[in-house]
Write a protein that binds this DNA or RNA. Structure first.
Length: 828
RNA sequence: GCCGAAGUGGCGGAAUUGGCAGACGCACCAGACUCAAAAUCUGGCGUGGUAGCCCCACGUGCCGGUUCGAGUCCGGCCUUCGGCACCA
């Protein structure tokens, strides 16, 4: 074995060997328990960044560990390869998106291979490949046929910089999540998926996601945003129509002193038509429509309203109240109209004060008298109803139910559940995505492309410049087609699908990526799904993870899969930071994985990144920390090198000989490490403490090597320890472990070794150190037999000379004795 | 504003069930090896007092509580980060 650790020879050697042996190829095998370990597949930007290295290093430890534990492990990788950057690069550099994307994929694949991750590369998929998006289109058509994909005209989010619409989930603080440009509203006809039909189901099932972080579950719950309330019909003075509002507080119905409509509300123009208010109202609406989302709806924005000269009639008492339009009412939520109850809603209160609208108290808190004249804010808490006719005196919680019942019975209102979640806008006016497989025929209207005509191929001879419509619209060869129904001339839909559609089902495709008769083989999907461990960034908490859950539920209802949740366990890893902030080109704090791998090797890069912090937490990059990881691996190399020849013919210790203290300590460290690493990896994902335990083992072995006379050293014990050391290290530093395994005369890959089980007897200590406390303060340390009873410990401690001296002149109140830990003497 | 997470040495972090706070690593200091340096090995390393390896006090964001005993549990704050943000 070489004296020096030359990672640059070892790593390529084993990467080639593993590929040559198909070491990581996996088959459906019902004989073995399956384990599906998946990391979120990347967008092929061209280069791996440290976040990827972290993500895939974590996944690789899990996959290798589970393999060694005897599971049949599916660990695939692919490319989320549709999307805007490819198109932007095409525009900027004149390279076709397809070429750009495939070159990036080639580059990143090579980088991933350099990291030595245990992927079954035969399962690689790319969502931009026709063999893949054919099935994306096929799945879209299943949704379409179920009435879950539909086209409608709506005020949608438009990013002027990306020149396309965006889903609600892609708008962050009123700006485009990709480019940060302020989003504007546009009235367009767009394709949607009916995720709201699954809102309740998606919400209910969150309870079943025991293996998910609470943080993510809460974020999804909030995003779905369920609320229970009543839709109430108000009359309109001088009009036949009803004005419907949605409220969660029907108990305050007698306190309504005005109504507010969203400026876009369809009734507004009707109410003002031909009145003196018409011009002002139209001006106001125009102004609102020109404001962007943030300016319009931020809590910081001052509430602004306008009386439109009309009156609504309260159905419970016939009171007439003025109708206004205001910026703070959203057309997209509820009915686009709200009742104003200033005494019991803070927003209404502020609005009423500003516009001098009456305030009417209808809920009185226990033992307190609210006065509309002197209130400085709304009272939103519990109380009893007043000024509410027949409902006076009821507790308001009870009144919410009773008034709701009353309204339903009298046909003036309907109890209703509302969700904050909106339907998923999936069409994009851009080129590099999966075409929506629909054609428009003058005779037959909207027609689905038949399955056998899929895929609808994305043409390559297209001018990519975005101009507000899909570039596909400018490609007559694409647009002009024949109607599948009547054979007459027809036009293709030119919008493409949101890339989140592609990533909503890739994890099922991985179970049978070469399947040609369907999106997957049902048998394979049944065998592998659900994903046992999913790993990725928390930034996908809502978008990708909610969409994937939605997809899985629909596919389950269609009988295409047998699980209704895709990911059993979820690990959300933290960001990789440098100098306290996220690595970015603009900050100039980027550390390139390629450079680190070139300088220290993949094993060092992986080890550092796993050691520096637990996976959920953000990780501060440290060049010196990398040096430390490298130093450790060299230390392991030299240790094994030192003993390699000495233990060559020796049988590992098998328990037949009684050992001395030093040898017992080596065995204790060894078996403790097995126990600790197994536990840390299997149940806690605390790779940092797992690695530190391996370091302690190595330190212990060095102590033995250097402090025990070489002639006295028990090589059987050393051999046992070294073998386990290599095995424990295998998931973290796979190349080095494999090289050492071979160099110490083993046949077969270390990665196919059985994960060891610790010997409990070796871990038990005969003697332990305990502390003696006086009123909780440590006063003495004693070494005692580990199995000493509490009573004996107490007597032993009290018998110590030093303890007796400390007790001089004090009286013992009580003694607490905890085996193997401490004796606490309480004195006065 | 609401929801959530986190605050521990010079730094990253550990302490899994309430039981010696600071494992492991980095940085730093000292020593060994060396002509010297690098590498390596050994030892030290929370703060303050005192000081010959003894001992004492203080110490896990702040204030209070429960307990023989609190980084850990409870109540109230502060700060940072993440999510949502006029959702009626």
């Amino acid at each position: 074995m070489k004296e020096k650790y030359v990672f640059s020879e070892i790593e390529p050697k084993w990467q080639q060997a593993w590929a040559g042996q198909n070491l990581y190829k996996v088959y459906d095998n019902v004989e073995k328990p399956k384990y599906y370990c998946l990391e979120m597949f990347p967008y092929p930007s061209g280069n791996l960044h440290m976040g990827h290295v972290r993500n895939y290093s974590i996944g690789d430890v899990v996959a290798r560990f589970k393999t060694m534990q005897g599971y049949n492990v599916l660990h695939p990788m692919g490319w989320d390869s549709f999307g805007l950057p490819a198109e932007n690069a095409a525009i900027k550099h004149g390279v076709p998106p397809e070429k750009w994307t495939w070159e990036n994929i080639d580059n990143m694949r090579a980088q991933l291979k350099q990291l030595g991750i245990s992927y079954d590369w035969d399962r690689e998929v790319a969502s931009c490949h026709p063999d893949y998006y054919r099935w994306t289109q096929w799945l879209f058509l299943r949704f379409y046929k179920q009435g879950l994909a539909y086209k409608k005209r709506a005020a949608v989010n438009w990013c002027p910089s990306c020149v396309t619409v965006l889903a609600n989930e892609q708008v962050i603080d009123g700006a485009c999540e990709r480019c940060d440009t302020a989003v504007v509203k546009k009235d367009l006809e767009q394709w949607f998926l009916s995720i709201t039909k699954y809102a309740q189901h998606l919400l209910d099932n969150i309870k079943k996601l025991d293996g998910w972080p609470d943080k993510v579950k809460i974020m999804q719950e909030n995003w779905i945003g369920r609320s229970e309330g009543v839709e109430i019909d108000f009359g309109l003075k001088g009009f036949e129509e009803k004005l419907t509002v949605y409220t969660t507080r029907p108990d305050t119905i007698f306190g309504v002193s005005y109504m507010v409509l969203a400026p876009e509300h369809p009734l507004v123009l009707k109410l003002v038509e031909g009145t003196e208010y018409e011009a002002a109202a139209k001006d106001f609406i125009k102004k609102m429509l020109h404001l962007n989302e943030i300016a319009r709806t931020s809590t910081e924005t001052e509430k602004e309203g306008l009386f439109i000269g009309a009156y609504a009639i309260n159905p419970v008492n016939g009171t007439e109240v003025p109708i206004l339009i205001a910026n703070y009412v959203l057309m997209e939520y509820g009915t686009g109209a709200v009742m104003g109850v200033p005494a019991h809603d803070q927003r209404d209160f502020e609005f009423a004060k500003k516009y001098n609208l009456p305030i009417k108290v209808v809920i009185q808190p226990e033992g307190q008298a609210l006065d509309a004249e002197t209130m400085t804010g709304a009272y939103e808490d519990e109380g009893n109803l007043v000024n509410s006719g027949q409902f006076d005196g009821l507790n308001n919680e009870e009144a919410i139910r009773k008034i709701g019942d009353y309204m339903e019975a009298n046909n003036i209102g309907l109890k209703r559940v509302n969700f904050r979640l909106r339907d998923w806008l999936i069409s994009r006016q851009r080129y590099w995505g999966a075409p929506i497989p629909i054609v428009y025929c003058d005779k037959c209207g909207e027609v689905a492309v038949p399955d056998e005509q899929l895929p609808v191929i994305l043409p390559s001879n297209v001018e990519f410049k975005p101009f507000g419509q899909s570039p596909l619209a400018e490609c007559p060869e694409f647009v002009n087609t024949t109607c599948p129904a009547c054979g007459g001339p027809a036009r293709r839909e030119t919008d493409t699908m949101d890339t989140f559609i592609c990533s909503s089902w890739y994890y099922i495709r991985f179970t049978s990526p070469q399947e040609t008769t369907g999106p997957w083989s049902k048998a394979s999907a049944d065998y592998w799904m659900a994903v046992d461990q999913y790993i990725g960034g928390v930034e996908h908490a809502i978008l990708h993870l909610l969409y994937s859950r939605f997809f899985t539920k629909v596919l389950y209802d269609l009988g295409l899969v047998s699980v209704d949740e895709p990911f059993t366990n979820l690990l959300t890893q933290g960001m990789v930071l440098k100098d306290g902030s996220k690595m970015s080109k603009s900050k100039g704090n980027v550390v390139s994985p390629e450079e680190i791998v070139a300088k220290y090797g993949a094993d060092t890069a992986r080890l550092f990144i796993l050691f520096a912090a637990p996976p959920e937490r953000d990780l501060e990059w440290s060049d010196q920390g990398v040096e430390g990881a490298y130093r450790f691996l060299n230390r392991v190399w030299r240790l094994v090198g030192h003993y390699a020849d000495k233990v060559a013919g020796v049988q590992p210790y098998n328990g037949s000989v009684e050992l001395g203290a030093a040898e017992k300590e080596v065995r204790r460290l060894t078996h403790y490490a097995i126990k600790k690493v197994s536990d840390d990896v299997a149940t806690r994902f605390n790779f940092n403490t797992a690695i530190s335990t391996i370091m302690e083992l190595v330190n212990g072995l060095y102590a033995y090597k250097d402090k025990v006379d070489p002639a006295e050293q028990n090589l059987a014990v050393v051999k046992e320890s070294l073998e386990y050391l290599m095995v424990l290290l295998a998931p973290f530093a796979p190349h080095m472990a494999e090289e050492l395994w071979e160099a110490t005369g083993h046949q077969g890959s270390i990665h196919l070794q059985k994960w060891p089980v610790h010997d409990p007897a070796a871990v038990i200590q005969d003697e332990v150190e305990i502390v003696v406390q006086l009123n909780g303060k440590v006063r003495e340390k004693l070494v005692i037999a580990a199995n000493m009873e509490p009573k004996a410990m107490e007597e032993f401690a009290l018998g110590q000379e030093k303890v007796r001296a400390l007790l001089e002149g004090k009286s013992v109140v009580k003694v607490i004795s905890v085996p193997k830990k401490l004796v606490n003497i309480v004195v006065k």
